[in-house]
């Protein structure tokens, strides 16, 4: 099961901050975390990252992991410097007003799995 980013955008009623022309990209799993240490340890490529953190290391972390899209939850919008970093790296940024729990739940209900190896 995978979802295109335009589907993620619709499910989360999200605003596209960066990459409106890149929404055909597909993700085959999602990870919701504010702990970049965990994200760096466990996230596979082609995973969607959902987080409430908006600092530059979210972009850095996505970059090293080949994460192509990030959803900021609770209506958070990062600063322009962070947005510019995402533009340079072709990382799609979305912002949703749902909480991390709600956003993850909605995507999971839509069929997007985690990557724990457990159903």
């Amino acid at each position: 099961m995978s979802l295109a980013l335009y589907e993620v955008k619709d499910i989360l009623k999200a605003e596209v901050l960066v990459g409106s022309d890149l929404l055909d990209r597909r993700v085959d799993a999602a990870c919701g975390s504010d702990l970049m240490s965990d994200v760096l340890s466990f996230v596979k490529s082609h995973t969607l990252l959902l987080t409430g953190l908006t600092n530059q290391h979210v972009i850095r972390t996505a970059e090293v992991l080949d994460v192509s899209a990030i959803v900021f939850v609770r209506g958070k919008v990062p600063g322009q410097d962070i947005i510019d970093m995402a533009v340079e790296r072709s990382i799609v940024l979305l912002s949703t007003s749902y909480t991390l729990f709600e956003a993850c739940g909605k995507l999971y209900m839509a069929g997007l799995p985690g990557k724990s190896g457990q159903a």
């Binding site: 240490s37 965990d38 340890s41 600092n55």
Partner: peptide
């Protein structure tokens, strides 16, 4: 505060 310092760095490098 930046989302690091969880004590996962060295084990992750090793992995």
């Amino acid at each position: 505060e930046l989302g690091f310092g969880a004590g996962m760095g060295l084990p992750n490098i090793k992995r």
